[in-house]
Write a protein that binds this DNA or RNA. Structure first.
Length: 252
DNA sequence: TCCCAGGTGTCGA
DNA sequence: TCGACACATGGG
């Protein structure tokens, strides 16, 4: 892994932004009760003993130059790649990602982080069992609380999410969206940031805006058409294209 | 005060 | 299949 913009990667609305703390360019969180730090000082550095975790988190095997070559299909994407060079898709724990993106529903990033952090104990997000058996109203999730509780209940009840990584993308979307409170958008975020399905293409307000303004005539283009277009155009790296467009659309 | 946020479920046409 | 609406909360 050579190409990395650590700050941008960790603070671009992906799962790590909700769970890692940042001080002067150093990112930290508790993992298994131990403090893990990641920083960039000429090269990538991290706390001894966390190499495999950090490499997985930052998807060290993704060859960005090769991915750029594949997704650089037009002027807009070219500019996004130029602006956000070194932005990587991250890979976090599936349940952490599921909980985070349920909290993200009709919410802003600052408050998502507050919500998620309030659901952590010693740096780890509460398990489905803990979510189900605890009064979590202190987290002030609003209407998302019942989504999270219900999803936790369904997972415990047998709608397992541990086999999703063995499924094909379409099957995985179908499986996740059966969970109460997980719709098309959240499922695609969970698949992208929690399971590593790089063909995922989450469509939120920012993506909808930039896609309809640049690739369609009609602002009311359906999400289904937008996703079909994106996956046709950017193929197995549609998720990378999505993340670059997301940053561009938000003006990060 | 108002608008909006990395949306989803529900209902009626 | 699609549009309208409710849903909690708080940042800007």
């Amino acid at each position: 892994m050579v190409l990395l913009n650590l700050g941008l990667t960790m603070k671009s609305g992906q799962t790590p932004e909700f769970l890692w703390n940042c001080e002067e360019g150093r990112f930290s969180r508790l993992i298994g009760g131990r403090l893990c730090e990641i920083w960039h000082d000429g090269e990538l550095k991290f706390t001894h003993g966390f190499e495999s975790r950090v490499m997985e988190l930052l998807r060290k095997d993704d060859d960005l130059e090769r991915i750029y070559k594949r997704i650089n299909t037009d002027g807009l994407m070219g500019e996004a790649i130029k602006n956000y060079r070194g932005l990587r898709i991250t890979k976090s724990d599936p349940w952490e990602t599921t909980l985070s993106f349920i909290c993200s529903i009709n919410n802003n990033i600052k408050r998502i982080r507050k919500n998620v952090q309030s659901l952590t104990v010693n740096g780890a997000v509460m398990t489905p069992e803990e979510i189900l058996n605890t009064d979590i109203s202190f987290a002030r999730l609003g209407f998302r609380q019942k989504f999270l509780k219900k999803t936790a209940e369904m997972i415990i009840g047998g709608h397992s999410i541990s086999e999703v990584n063995k499924m094909k993308y379409e099957e995985a979307v179908e499986h996740l969206t059966k969970l109460h409170g997980i719709g098309d958008k959240v499922a695609n975020c969970v698949l992208l940031f929690g399971y590593g399905f790089l063909e995922s293409f989450p469509i939120d307000t920012w993506i909808r805006k930039i896609m309809t303004e640049n690739y369609f005539d009609c602002k009311k283009t359906s999400d289904r058409k937008i996703r079909e277009f994106a996956q046709e155009r950017w193929g197995k790296y549609a998720g990378y294209a999505n993340q670059y467009l997301f940053c561009y659309s938000r003006g990060l």
